[in-house]
């Protein structure tokens, strides 16, 4: 049964929420979510690449020979990633410094190739666009929330681009930042507990 564009878009927000439902793209999910800002930045960069590559692959789906489709997908994805990397260097340099190697690593993020292979090369341009945007925004929200939880517990405060900020320690002066949460093992435990919660909620 064909889905409407709205359904293609919203499925990425819950039913196929990338890190939690599809359990894809875990490397940046674990690596960059030391703060909400990093998580959102990574998510937005991925969304851009996903959106662009989904559209282009869907447009070219009748041209690309099936034997070399993976190579073609990689060329398209890698080009978008490089564009994002250059743009981030030019306009959001501090964020680029923080995300570092994770930006070029978007190329090998399974979500991108997964969406290209499973969706964009089989569907028309408009639904691929909706799919890419939905999955990308879902990914951004997931990374942002994981980053927010880790930053809040680990630093005691959340700051996003210097404006939106919340300080847990001013609300609870006796709170001691639980630094374990912003360290690598904290990422695994936090992700695991969130997966647990999301599975408990179910569909």
């Amino acid at each position: 049964m064909p889905k409407t564009l709205v359904q293609e878009f919203t499925k990425g927000l819950w039913q196929e929420l990338p890190p939690f439902r599809l359990v894809l793209g875990l490397c940046p999910t674990l690596g960059v979510t030391t703060s909400m800002e990093n998580g959102l930045g990574m998510g937005i960069a991925t969304t851009f690449v996903l959106f662009g590559s989904n559209i282009l692959i869907s447009m070219l789906r009748s041209v690309i020979p099936s034997k070399v489709r993976i190579a073609c997908f990689i060329i398209i994805i890698a080009s978008f990633v490089t564009i994002v990397e250059l743009l981030m260097q030019a306009y959001t340099y501090p964020l680029y410094l923080k995300l570092g190697v994770f930006i070029p690593l978007i190329v090998v993020n399974c979500i991108l190739l997964g969406r290209a292979e499973a969706f964009a090369c089989k569907n028309n341009v408009s639904s691929s666009m909706a799919d890419g945007l939905g999955i990308g925004i879902g990914y951004t929200l997931a990374l942002g929330s994981l980053g927010a939880i880790r930053e809040l517990l680990g630093h005691g405060s959340v700051t996003v681009w210097g404006h939106l900020s919340y300080n847990l320690m001013s609300a609870f002066p006796s709170y001691h930042p639980f630094t374990f949460m912003v360290q690598a093992p904290g990422a695994f435990i936090c992700l695991g507990l969130m997966l647990c919660l999301i599975n408990a909620i179910g569909d």
Partner: peptide
């Protein structure tokens, strides 16, 4: 170990 990593001072 987790506690010591987080709140070394305590």
């Amino acid at each position: 170990t987790i506690l010591m990593l987080s709140w070394g001072a305590l």
